[in-house]
Amino acid sequence: MTRVPPRTRRNRTHIVVFLAPAVLIYTAVMIVPLFETLRLSLFTTSGNHFVWNGVANFGVLFFDERQSLGFWNALRNNVYFFVIQMLQNPIGIGLAALLALPRLRAGAFYRTAIFLPTLLSFVIVGFGWKLILSPLWGVAPSLLGAVGLKGLFAPYLGRESSALTTLGFISVWQYVGVPMMLAYAALISIPDEIIDAAEVDGVVGIAQFFRVKLPLIWPTIGMISILTFVGNFNAFDLVYVTQGALGAPNYSTDILGTLLYRTFFGYQLQLGDPNMGATVATMMFLIILAGVCVYLFAVQRKISRYQF
């Protein structure tokens, strides 16, 4: 008997129909503009035309004092902001560990309450904290006074030395709910039997968390960290709302997001420049790419995933 191929191939157009809208919109509005931005960083504007400029824009950004001081300052601030921001992970995971305790009562209430700030916009969070920390209004001093620390109060957001740190903590306050929720979900998906076995083996309490639970949720923690890293470049809104586009006071809270905004659109005396804006965006892209690659190739490989 000879083998005959089936006569009619089944119609597969539905696969294209299912994929087309998502792929088209995503490509047209996200990927193409992204590459267009990367491309524009290699051009400069002369009259109405873009002129090929090689990597000269990057030279200006790195070494021309008019641009480079701002860039390095913003980059430094961004790194510092990220370091503070990372504090949200141990705090969030710690809270999740408490919430995941078996037989904890009112867990849903705590989860709901702690996640609440995450839902608010930067506008509300930024202005709200600005008011609370304002020396004009007595909320912060009175509160500190209530716990006997009135002497610690200072106009945190107004001082160059503390403004960025304060913003970092505000951001931690807002987003601690995200690592908490993700870690909580990971913790409660550890099978009860494993925890029971640990109890029988005498691994209890804090030791149980560090020896049994934590190793099992490392993949989630890795993912949370990389999301924090990427999200950190979206921190424009918070700075813009509380300190303005110039990263007041005296650029001490200027980060790459605000720098991109000013460079691209111009602000006050500075004229907008799409090519330099694109150059800043390209640098942010490269930094994120580097971070993600480090994560994928160095960190994630060392993390074992466990199937339950």
Partner: peptide, 19 residues
């Protein structure tokens, strides 16, 4: 599932490509 090659006949009629 679609066979890579060969034929299926159900009640005497070819079923190849029939949903």
């Amino acid at each position: 599932e679609e066979q890579t090659s060969g034929n299926v006949r159900i009640a005497g009629a070819s079923a190849d490509g029939v949903p």
